[in-house]
Design a protein around this nucleic acid. Structure first.
Lengths: 210, 210
DNA sequence: ACCTGAACACCGTTCAAGT
DNA sequence: ACCTGAACACCGTTCAAGT
């Protein structure tokens, strides 16, 4: 047989992505990926140490896409931190909902932290750092509260990540009608991230450790 | 061999839970579960249609535990909706972090919505309904804002669910030190759910659909 | 350097057969 | 009614062998 283009590695990744999109991340088999790529079942081992290494490469590209999309979305609103955050939030949820299986691969526990490959953690770090600087500039402009940046960022990240995972997991199917997509939901939820859920005259005192 | 107590079904579930806790939800094999339960590899098929049916039974018990724990936690603070919500939030995140693999089984996309077994959706529904009534009573007491109950509840659920999934997924390992456990994190995050992240003099105008 | 094919131990599922 | 054991098609991984 011919030597397959030169980069079987990339062909395998693309074949794996299409298979994951079809059958879910847990139903994927390395042999099926190889067959779709047009090579024998042992050929992938020249390019990936493991089945897990292939999955990690795909997850890594997913984190990169997430970092790129959210950064681009926020850049559409210079000097407006709240809209930057809103745009990044919507982009995050949208991308996750558009690629549910890959998002599950990234966050669903398929990848053990054994050998997180450095570059994967790096990509994830990059996405979080851009969120941190977004919050930071908002604090400097006195738009966001003067609280620890990591906490503010984690609150925002948690809410949008949770929303995305719930949508993907099908947990909202009966509760929210089909009429409102991820944009609408993340927008309506995002209001409460901005302003909180407490009534205007209520102030929140944290009871702390009892 | 002897006829195995009478309820192999329950023995299988317990064996599966212990195996999932050891090796993760994707690495579980029905044959290994049967072996740990002390029966042949085909015995489980008398009690579960599928490998998936076993996993669904486990996920269902997980949803029931979540519903029970959050309800009990909130009942510790009668007539104080904010502390009820805070207690339920902490309980949610704690239970998830205590059983990471089962939580991933419940929410990570291992269960296809093909045959969600009714009873599973019911258990999930029950947990959400207690959150709804919690929010509702808080609105009646003018503690929470007069906004759609479903939206307020989804905001709270999303934030705590996202936090739990990020912790479980190992995404916060380098960012938050080990010194603060799930209680502390969900408490600090919960403040922003209550009060929002905007500065006191900023009001949030949703630009809507452009 | 890159790929193949046989081989091994494992898996999910089914089904005739045993008690 | 409940369980076993053989059987089938599949899987991940390895390794000698081919070009």
């Amino acid at each position: 047989m011919n030597y397959h283009h030169g980069d079987l590695k990339n062909t395998l990744i693309k074949a794996a992505i299409s298979l994951i999109a079809e059958k879910g991340p847990n139903a994927i088999s390395l042999r099926a990926v190889a067959k779709r790529a047009g090579v024998s079942h042992s050929a992938p081992y020249r390019h990936f140490k493991d089945k897990g290494a292939l999955l990690m490469a795909i997850a890594e590209s997913g984190f990169n896409a997430l970092a790129t999309r959210t950064r681009e979305a926020s850049q559409a609103f210079p000097d407006d931190p709240t809209r930057q955050l809103q745009a990044a939030s919507i982009a995050y949820v949208e991308l996750a909902v558009e690629n549910p299986e890959i998002t599950q691969l990234m966050f669903g526990g398929f990848i053990t932290p054994d050998e997180c490959s450095g570059t994967l953690a790096e990509a994830s770090e990059r996405a979080f750092n851009s969120l941190l600087s977004l919050i930071e500039s908002g604090k400097a402009a006195a738009v966001f509260r003067d609280e620890p940046t990591e906490e503010l960022a984690l609150a925002a990240w948690s809410m949008m990540h949770g929303l995305a995972m719930l949508i993907i997991g099908g947990q909202l199917q009966t509760r929210e009608g089909d009429q409102c997509g991820p944009q609408q939901i993340s927008r309506s939820i995002g209001r409460f991230l901005m302003e909180g859920i407490l009534g205007k005259n209520i102030s929140f005192s944290d009871p702390g450790h009892e």
